[in-house]
Amino acid sequence: MSIAEYHKLVRDKIPEMIREQGETPVFRILEQEEYLKELDRKLDEEIREYQEDKSLEELADVLEVMLAICKARGYSEQELRDVYEKKHAKRGGFEERIYLISKE
């Protein structure tokens, strides 16, 4: 029997899915500070995967991690949306594809 090593944060249902495949997951529950650190690592991983693939699926994974970070840091999804909308109203978005060269 071979052992696959991962050492990374995984989605909540992964241990159950591993059991359903007849294997035994070995895991632990992270403390809050560790969890925040691993969420940041997971965000980097998901962004890399999106950059390689450019798929909506990978973009959804980035959003999933962003929402988990938001919650883990004590913010609600609505608070995030409110800050986003305020910044968007004040500074705009990226829809017009403006690429700033310089400022004189």
Rank of each mutant, 00 (worst) to 15 (best):
V10H: 03
G92C: 03
V10W: 02
Q78R: 13
I14G: 01
G93C: 02
E5C: 06
Q32A: 12
Y50C: 03
Y50P: 02
D61N: 05
E45A: 07
E46R: 01
E46W: 00
Q51C: 11
Y75H: 14
L56P: 00
M1W: 08
E58M: 00
L43C: 06
E46C: 03
R91A: 11
I3M: 07
E31W: 06
E16N: 00
D44V: 12
Q32I: 12
E16K: 05
Q32S: 13
Y50F: 15
E16A: 08
G74M: 00
Q51I: 06
I69S: 05
L100G: 04
K37C: 09
V10E: 06
G74Q: 02
G74A: 02
K54Q: 12
F94M: 07
R28W: 11
A4T: 14
A72H: 08
H88R: 14
F94D: 01
E79C: 04
E85D: 12
I101Q: 09
I18D: 02
L30A: 15
I18N: 01
D61W: 01
Y75I: 04
L59H: 00
S55T: 15
V62G: 03
V65G: 04
R11C: 05
F27Q: 04
Y99P: 00
Y75V: 04
Y6C: 07
K8S: 09
A68D: 13
Y75F: 15
K42A: 15
R97N: 13
G22F: 05
L9Q: 07
E77N: 08
F94R: 08
S76L: 02
Y99L: 13
L39K: 07
S102R: 12
D61E: 08
T24K: 13
G93S: 00
V65M: 06
Q51F: 09
D44M: 11
R91C: 08
T24H: 04
I18E: 02
I69Y: 00
S2T: 09
K103M: 12
Q21K: 13
